[in-house]
Nucleic acid binder design. Structure first.
Lengths: 237, 237
DNA sequence: CGCGGAATTGATGGCGCTCAAGCCACGTGG
DNA sequence: CCACGTGGCTTGAGCGCCATCAATTCCGCG
């Protein structure tokens, strides 16, 4: 299942068969998490990192009087906490947004793998750079996009990322979040998320029923979002 | 001058004398940029990367009808566009916020260096992870902090980062930006930045005169900002 | 059927935006 | 020396987006 990770890089990065095998071998036991269960607590130190292979997980930080902000959403093929490998101490928590399964990469094994293959280290480095790109785009969203644009942009992004790892179905994908969680992703209030959603529905850009997002009008949605997929290093669709 | 880069990691990461020498050798000619001159244009491909050695630079993205959002501020010791090394195409612009000098690291030389020393590749990887941490904290700021908290937090962050590379003087540091630029960093309007600044001044938390920020009350400023410096992987002050 | 969590809708208020005007410092040229 | 232009800062008025609070309604599930 960790193959999803490799899908993200498509033809941009090819490993030799041995590297590929070595990479896949680094992943150990599979663990299952309930919705809302934390995979990793903020402040902890770990001897392994988690890669999501199914479901959605998210990083979050808490502020005083209960405010919460998600800083990243992880889909299949994403490392949730590679930070713990390099920086030794997590400064955010990771929680399961949906029932979610992860495989672990033991840090010592990862270390050995990297020493054998600088190529794989480069691949992991590239992955964190891609993450950084996404963070930056979120900064743009929160700073300069309207609530509608922000939501539209997130939906475009998730669609593209899920498509890369083959978790979409035509123009729709599973998104079993609550509106509260979406609010904490977007930096909005739950009530306003509701209204913005209804606006996108009214304009026939997308629907969200039974926990499934269906994009009704990709062109218009991308226009409202001012979505430029370059930052995902993707060149499809 | 690229030594500033190494300061950031303090004792967390030590290179052997040879690695250190090799690392420093990779940097070539020094280039000087005027205020508001672009070091790198969005969309370009480069054969080298820029490390800031003096002044301030910033990444930005533009949206329709003139909106601009800075996604990162770079101080001495920061790579402005390491992205071009791994991803080949810049998806943001980099501009000089102040007169600014940079040294270039040729990609081919960088490549050779990395092949010799996985340790250095690890160091660079760590640097982009640190960047990602900062981006994430910005997301938290923009999503869940008030305008006052946001500005306070930025000042705390800049102070710590500049201190690490020895660009502070007691509790003050040079920050020769305009309020417009600050607005595009914080995702606020210029008018509101002005008001928020005057509030911090009124509360005697900081002053900003002659392009110098002076923190008058670190404790209170950090409290208003809810500043937790862990994300900078710094353990001083 | 009844419960509880989530979604929706309405009312109200405030933070932060826009527009507009005025101020100040600085440089330039008559 | 003054007139003028320019760029940045400051302040006020008014408004709108989005938050908060409070009801209801919807829906899945025991």
């Amino acid at each position: 299942m960790p193959e999803a990770f490799l899908h993200k890089f498509q033809d941009r990065f090819v490993l030799s068969p041995e590297e590929r095998a070595g990479f896949l071998r680094v992943f150990g036991r599979e663990r299952r998490f309930e919705m809302r269960q934390d995979l990793v607590a903020s402040g902890s130190s770990l001897s392994y990192s988690n890669m999501i292979v199914d479901g959605l997980a998210a990083r979050y930080k808490l502020l005083s009087n209960g405010r919460r902000q998600f800083t990243a959403i992880h889909v299949a093929g994403d490392f949730a906490d590679l930070q713990s490998f390099l920086l030794h101490r997590m400064e955010y928590g990771v929680t399961a947004l949906t029932p979610c399964t992860a495989v672990t990469a033991d840090h010592e094994a990862l270390q050995r793998l990297i020493e054998e293959s600088g190529n794989i280290q480069r691949l992991l480095w590239m992955d964190t750079m891609l993450e950084a790109s996404i963070h930056q785009e979120w900064v743009v969203s929160m700073g300069r996009r309207s609530a509608v644009g922000r939501l539209a942009h997130l939906m475009c992004e998730l669609f593209m990322r899920l498509k890369l790892v083959r978790r979409t179905d035509d123009l729709s994908f599973k998104l079993p979040l609550t509106q509260l969680e979406l609010a904490d992703v977007l930096g909005l209030s739950i009530v306003h998320v509701n209204r913005v959603l209804s606006e996108l529905r009214r304009e026939r850009l997308l629907t969200w029923t039974n926990h499934v997002i269906r994009i009704e009008d990709w062109e218009k949605l991308a226009e409202v979002a001012e979505f430029q997929p370059d930052y995902l290093s993707v060149h499809i669709l």
